[in-house]
């Protein structure tokens, strides 16, 4: 039961926020994170077109052997991806509240440029309060 990492991917597939909270995943460089986020964006676009019964919002959970990633797609195309252990139960509520923090501390901040990396102390502290401390 642990939350490993959080990604925020903008609607063009760029990684605008990445933060680790606990060990359990391979340590990657920021460049590798960027590439993986872009790949996930592509996979997500494909999954949203695979549905046999018309419109689909795309992949929501992808599970591995030791972790799962939960993808939360907002109406504007921004994706929040939470990396957790397999039996983490709070993912949905955590993602909801991350979205809330994003709406408050990022979108209402006049010093944030949309679609650009998030550098907002307010968002950082809200996430820390929500998920807990972590490295970087």
């Amino acid at each position: 039961m642990a939350i490993f990492s959080l990604w925020v991917i903008n609607k063009a597939g760029g990684l605008v926020y990445q933060r680790n909270f606990a060990d359990g995943l391979a340590q990657l460089t920021s460049n590798e994170h960027l590439v993986l986020a872009g790949t996930l964006h592509g996979i997500h676009a494909i999954t949203s077109r695979l549905s046999p019964i018309g419109a689909s919002s795309g992949a929501q959970v992808i599970e591995g052997e030791s972790f799962k990633m939960t993808i939360f797609l907002t109406a504007t195309g921004t994706k929040f991806v939470l990396f957790t252990s397999l039996h983490e139960t709070t993912t949905d509520s955590v993602l909801q509240r991350v979205y809330e923090a994003y709406a408050d501390a990022v979108m209402k901040n006049p010093f944030h440029t949309p679609e650009m990396p998030i550098r907002s102390e307010g968002f950082d502290s809200r996430i820390t309060a929500l998920i807990g401390t972590g490295q970087s």
Binding site: D104, A105, K108, P110, F111, S120, E121, G122, F123
Partner: peptide, 14 residues
């Protein structure tokens, strides 16, 4: 409440 001023403008108060 929702404004985070960047470090290079830290003296700014909205």
């Amino acid at each position: 409440r929702n404004i985070s001023v960047p470090r290079d403008m830290s003296s700014l108060s909205c």
